[in-house]
Design a binder for these strands. Structure first.
Lengths: 150, 150
DNA sequence: TATTGTTATACTCTATAACTATA
DNA sequence: TATAGTTATAGAGTATAACAATA
């Protein structure tokens, strides 16, 4: 009688940080689509736009490294967003190998169109975690990433 | 002077739970490959094997739902592992539509071959988080997933 | 009618290596 | 020699819909 219907025991995986992060990320993305889906935007695209709004003229490779996207893939993403008229690329005089990225007016407008709904999404309750628990979770994740000292 | 070299400001994304979970998951997978890479196993495959070890005879659809894998993709994964001789599929008499999954002897041996290194991996320090912080992080993630009450 | 697994298709993301132009 | 971006290719992973067998 091994099958317990629809119940499943994660075993020690249920206490594996990697597995928990994987599940949590999937749930988080599902929440993102539920809240933001009607804007027809995806997490990766939104990340790019927001980071460019915050870092105008950032070099393409720096962006790729910060977002953990491979350079080859970044090329495709950037060209895609360029052909959508959201970003422009310039080659700086002091290093003609590199490319600087800038939001176009349309790109900046897209950011401002998305931002309110994103902030609403971020402010929404997270499962049945209290506000303090969410803050602590974010703090620990930032510590994990080395983005914050104790 | 918009470019700040290799520094990049995540802006409000740096406090977005979804973005932090995304970064943390990427780092966690990188750690997984660093620690376990020589076993030539990937997180998804290991998860399948461990869950089957804990839940012999689980129905394929139940497994797919628990691991957030689409049924169509699960079919491919299961057939792949079957052709590697790691799992077997049986059709229960009481519902001939469904498929029950079992580890083969080789599959069970694979689990036991991987487990020690996995436990070592899990025991390793996580960034510069203290043990108590890691425990709290896991607790909050489990709470987020509804796997644990307050 | 609904569900389980399957097949097929398309798209996204990832990984790798070779290439160019510049440094 | 090394680096930044590009191109090409292959492989995972994901999403969707249509289908057969079964409930």
């Amino acid at each position: 009688m091994p099958d317990r219907g629809d119940q499943l025991d994660y075993g020690q995986l249920g206490h594996s940080l990697g597995f928990l992060l994987r599940l949590a990320q999937l749930r988080s993305f599902a929440n993102f689509y539920k809240d933001m889906g009607e804007l027809n935007i995806r997490p990766g695209e939104m990340t790019m736009l927001f980071v460019l709004a915050e870092n105008p003229g950032v070099r393409q490779g720096v962006l790729a490294k910060a977002l953990r996207i491979k350079r080859a893939h970044m090329t495709k993403m950037v060209h895609g967003m360029e052909s959508e008229g959201l970003v422009t690329r310039t080659v700086p005089a002091d290093d003609k190998r590199s490319v600087e990225l800038w939001l176009t007016e349309d790109g900046a407008a897209r950011v401002e169109a998305v931002r309110p709904m994103f902030e609403q999404h971020e402010a929404r309750p997270v499962g049945d975690l209290s506000g303090a628990e969410v803050a602590e979770l974010k703090h620990l994740l930032r510590r994990f990433m080395g983005m914050e000292k104790r």
